[in-house]
Amino acid sequence: MQTQLEQAIEAISQVVLGKKHQIKLALTCLLAKGHLLIEDLPGMGKTSLSQAIASTIGLEFNRVQFTSDLMPADIIGISIFDNTSKEFAFHKGPLFSQMLLADEINRASPKTQSALLEAMEEHQVSVDGTTWPLPNPFFVIATQNPLHQSGTYPLPESQLDRFFMRIQLGYPDWQSERQMLMELTSHSTMPPKTIIDTTQFLDIQSQIPKINTSAAVIDYILRLVTFSRESEEFPNPLSPRASKAILLAAKAWAFLSSRDYVIPEDVQAVLPSVAEHRLRSSFSSANAADNLSNKLMESVDTLAA
């Protein structure tokens, strides 16, 4: 299974060049059944990444471009009176897919944002008193422009917390971008083939919790979390939900690294993505250079005292 995952990573990195680490993190998030927030400037390959992931895992993929006038019904769906059956029939919106790409989520109004986030949390939607389950698996990959850009409604901390992970893609390096441009002139890029089918993927997902975590690793995570709570440098300390997320992500990372146990390095690999958006307050987030999760890692010893 690990080999298939490696193939998937390889295939995706043919589409998004030079971003292997971010791809691995994205897969980690999906394996841990979490929703992913990609934060970056436009044109950095956020959409390509989501599409490539969806097609390698063989997921049904929908994309919604969020705008300021997007209404909740636009993504959930609406009930329309059917003249023939004399009943209201529910027309499912783009939310009903295995993978939803919510592009530029911070451009939508808070109302729409929270409708989406509720669905993400509940894995179901209720319309007119009827509950509709969402497909399984169900992932949301949301993209977000950096907050200083105009026309944005920043996601409140409480909702950021719903995202299991937040990654940034960043500019590609010289080599990768060069290769990208070369390939662009030679042939059109095709979406990658499906490498893991959905049942296989669900099977892999179910194995993640079985990855072993020793007391030493759990203590390390606890030291990290506790430090964030005790130190004044962290305006938003990590919640128990965050520590759960760190552990789960570390497990998935260990799995992707072909190990059946977690080492501190796994925790460190996922910590910036899992913890950074939870540590930072919405208003201080403008200062992106001030990396809180790195500060946290540097302050805590990996080994017990």
């Binding site: 080492i263 501190p264 390095e265 460190q268 540097e298 302050s299 805590v300 010893d301 990996t302």
Partner: peptide, 9 residues
Amino acid sequence: RLPQEGPDS
């Protein structure tokens, strides 16, 4: 060893 370094790193 830096404190944040895991044994493997």
